[in-house]
Computed example of a mutant assay.
Amino acid sequence: MTKSSPVPITVLGLGAMGRALANAFLIGGHPTAVWNRTPGRHAELVAAGATSAATVDEAVAAGGLIVACLLDHGSVHDVLDPVAGDLAGRTVVNLTSTAPSDARELAAWAECHGIEYLDGGIMSIPAMIGRPESFLLYSGSKEVFDENRAVLELLGSAEYFGADAGMASLYDFALLAAMYTMFAGFSHGAAMVRTEGVPATEFAKHAVQWLSAMVQVLPLSGEAIEAGAEADGQSLDFTKAALDAIVRASREAGVGLDVVGPLKALVDRQVADGHGAKAFDAVFEGVRAPGSE
């Protein structure tokens, strides 16, 4: 059997993440062309074997798979609209962070121009790309995903979420919401103990131990939400009392309530609506979209 030639790849956008993607493709042995709106970010990649394109037209003419990692949804159109005709019959994998509706709009745009389209969400920081802990989410064309899976897995593990191009970004943003909320909670706790001179680095040691243990119960929380969040342990009434005390302690320490204040308001509302006997997971009902199943 003859070994197939490496797939040429063009990376559009050389921010920290774009450079990491291009580097992973180069390490994987793929001829890689790179382009960036602002010059000067390609030197290390060129030294590693990449080809620098002076214009988007030149980058697209390099052939192969087009991977876009740009600033936002508008940037994708700004870059790709002028070369849409040249992309007909080609494949675009969009790894730009875009809202689900934007991903669906880009998929429709691509279909109108005869472009094969796959949308992706990167659940990694640049330093993790190509490492075992890196994983990326994809949705859109199943054919594109299957045909290019080996290339995509150079970046990290690849999971496909179906033909709806918006599903990968929906999962991406939902996971980021959980992450950012956790980090914000850590910052609130660090601010509380700092009032007594405790460094954030010291607090982090205890936070890692505590949060690592709590993360293990997330599957149980998922089950509780689907079962109606009936209490099997601590109730929302208990949580309300705890949050009341946390808010009081925060105020006494002079720490802002930007993080815990909205959570307390959510719990207070659920208790006032008669859900105090349910588990903490009942806050799901307070934030989910009306009518969603």
Rank of each mutant, 00 (worst) to 15 (best):
K3D: 13
K3I: 08
K3Y: 03
K3V: 12
K3A: 15
S4N: 13
S4Q: 15
S5P: 04
V7R: 13
P8L: 12
I9W: 08
I9S: 06
V11L: 13
V11A: 11
L12V: 11
L14G: 13
L14N: 02
L14V: 08
L14K: 09
L14E: 11
G15S: 05
G15D: 04
G18F: 03
L21S: 03
L21H: 05
L21P: 01
N23Q: 14
N23E: 12
A24M: 06
F25K: 03
F25T: 05
G28E: 04
G28S: 11
G29A: 08
H30R: 13
H30D: 06
T32P: 07
A33I: 00
A33F: 02
V34G: 03
V34H: 02
V34Y: 06
W35H: 14
W35S: 00
N36F: 07
T38Y: 03
T38Q: 10
P39M: 04
P39Y: 01
G40R: 05
G40S: 10
H42I: 00
E44F: 00
L45R: 01
L45T: 03
V46L: 09
V46S: 10
A47L: 06
A48F: 02
G49H: 13
G49A: 15
G49I: 06
A50S: 06
A50E: 01
S52E: 15
A53D: 08
A54L: 08
T55F: 06
D57E: 14
D57W: 01
D57T: 11
E58I: 02
A59K: 07
A59E: 07
V60L: 05
V60G: 02
A62C: 12
A62H: 15
